[in-house]
Each structure stands twice: as structure tokens, then as C-alpha cells.
Computed example of a mutant assay.
Amino acid sequence: MFWRIFLLNAAVLVIATVALLLGPVTVSTPVVIREALILGVGLAAMLAANAALLRIGLGPLARLTRTMATTDLLRPGNRLPATGHGRQVRDLITTFNTMLDRLEAERATSAARALSAQEGERHRIAQELHDEIGQTLTAVLLELKRVADHAPSPVREEIRQVQETTRNSLDEIRRIARRLRPGVLEELGLTSALRALVTEFTASGLAVRGRFGTDLPELSREVELVLYRVAQESLTNTARHARAGHVDLSLHRHGQGVELRIRDDGRGLGRAPEGAGIRGMRERALLIGADLAVGPHSGTGTEVRLRVPDPAGKRD
């Protein structure tokens, strides 16, 4: 818009200057070099003044354009001050800020519903895995044991191998059910659930060290679930993609709230775009008004930091 208006005004001024130099109303005929220089300087001054005025007048619109291009609803709070020369420009910026407020509120509401439905579906699947498939495999194990006790010696060894495979499958199903529905979180609290998470990933080959504060404030169930899911997703991403050997997981008081921090010594994020896992963590953080930061830390590796200013899980 700036260049369109500027070039249009410049074209008009150039045409007027040329007409003054070459037309019958020229100051001198033929053209005097001195007068041409004076007119050229005048033209340049007019163009400079025109450009400065347009830049000042359209500056708020340029800032608004940059804000619109960089707005991310997963990083809320980015607002443009309603300033500028002219009521229409200020009204436009105010309308844009109001629209952002509405979009962020609607996204937070829809994300809360989606995540609530997701947790409910996880709970249902975990229950079915435990109650139906788990019990079925347990019955199969008992039947295999009965058959093995009466089977001939050559066949008995093969049945034992089938038993072992079935037992490993049962253990895997129970592990999946625990990850879908962290029963230890509901029964023993966040610190115990995080300790169990540390033990689980350490047993899978990733050296995880957990450190937990003893003066943590009282946390709501929603905050505890978000903290647990962020820690779980971070450790899962580290195990799958980071090629890390060691991970530090800590949960401590931070002001009136808490801070969860996960650091690894892997290859880092590089220039890879954020995947669904990180976007999911950001959405969960928004539900409790928390601040999530994902990036490199000193040395190598990646750091995930989640700060919860309100441990009760209330949003303004």
C-alpha cells in the first residue's frame, strides 16, 4: 500500500514538473539549467516529504501486517497497541485485537473439550485392555500351564515358549494401559507418578534422573495431569528422536507455582518444525495458563520447561 500510494504521488509530481519545464508555462524558454536544478531539488523535497508522511501514516498498518503474519494461537498474548494517525487505523487495530481475544478464547475452549474427550477415550481403552484383553491372556496363560503339565516332554518346551511370549504380551498390554491411564497419578499423586515414569524409561534404556522438591504447593488434578502428560511426552520424544543417553527431570516450586524441567544430552531440535507432540504440550499448557518453552540449553540437547504460575489451575 505504501509503495502504491507513493509511486502514484511521485508520478503526479514528476508529470507536473516535466509539464512545467517543457510546457508553455515554463519559467524560461528554452529551459535554463539553473531553473531545472531548482525544480529538481523542489521535486526531490516534495517526494521526500510525501514519503515521510506516508511512512508515518501507514506505519501502524505495516506493524499490523507483521503481527497478522506471525500470530500463533498457541503463543497467546501478542497484541498491537491501538495507536496511529487517524481513527480508522486505530479502530482497525482494536478490531484485530478483539478478534484475537475471541479466537484464543474459542480455541482454548475447544482444546479443553478435545483433550477432555481424549483423556476419557484413553481411560476407556486402558480399562478395556486391562479388563478384557488382559484377563483373556491371563486365562490363556493358565490354560497353557495346564496343557504343559500334561504334555509330552518334546511338546512341553514349545508350550513353555508360547507361555513366555504370551506373558511378555500381557506385560506389554499392562504397560500400555498404564501409560494411557496413569493410575498411580490418581492414587499416589504427581511425584510418585513421575518417579514411576522415570523408572519406566530408565528400564527401557534411557538413563533418567529425577529430582523433586519437597515444598511443592497443592496442585489441582488438572494441573497434575498436564504436568504428567508433558513429562511423558517429553521423555517419549527424547527416547524416540533425540539419541540421548541421559535425561534430567526436575519438578520444583517456582514462586507461588511450580516448574517442570526436562533436559537431555541428545542432538537437539535443529531446524525441524514442531511436531504434533510439542503442539499438544502447548495446548495442554494453555488449559492451565502455564508457560511452555522448548529449545536448546547450554551445551547440547533440548530443554522443555513448563512453568505453572497458578497451582490451582485457574485461568484469568
Rank of each mutant, 00 (worst) to 15 (best):
A231K: 02
L216H: 10
A231G: 00
P217N: 12
Y228I: 01
Y228M: 09
G255P: 02
E218N: 09
R221G: 14
V208S: 04
G205T: 10
G257T: 07
G245S: 12
R209D: 12
A244K: 00
S250P: 02
R229N: 11
T214R: 12
V226F: 07
V258H: 08
L216E: 04
G213E: 07
A231D: 03
S204I: 11
F212N: 07
F212Q: 09
H252L: 14
G205D: 10
Q256C: 09
H246E: 15
R211S: 13
G257R: 02
G255V: 08
L249F: 06
L225R: 13
R221L: 13
V258T: 11
L249N: 01
L235V: 06
H241P: 05
G255N: 08
A207C: 09
H254F: 12
H254Q: 15
L206P: 03
S204G: 08
R243T: 01
A207N: 15
D248F: 06
R221N: 15
L251I: 05
H246K: 14
R209C: 04
R240L: 10
S204D: 15
G213W: 03
E233H: 10
A207R: 14
G210W: 08
H246Y: 14
Q232K: 08
T238A: 07
L219G: 00
L206N: 06
A207K: 12
V208R: 01
A242R: 03
L227N: 03
Q232M: 06
S234Q: 06
Q232G: 10
S220P: 11
H246P: 02
E218F: 13
R229G: 05
L216N: 01
L225D: 11
V258E: 03
T238Y: 00
S250I: 03
V258N: 01
H241Y: 11
Y228W: 14
G205K: 11
V226N: 01
T238H: 04
G255S: 08
V247L: 05
T238V: 13
V258G: 07
H241M: 04
L206Y: 07
R211P: 01
G213K: 02
L227D: 01
R253T: 13
A239H: 08
D215I: 07
V223G: 00
L225K: 10
G205Q: 10
A231H: 01
R211G: 11
Q232R: 12
E218V: 14
P217M: 06
T214M: 11
R240W: 05
V230D: 00
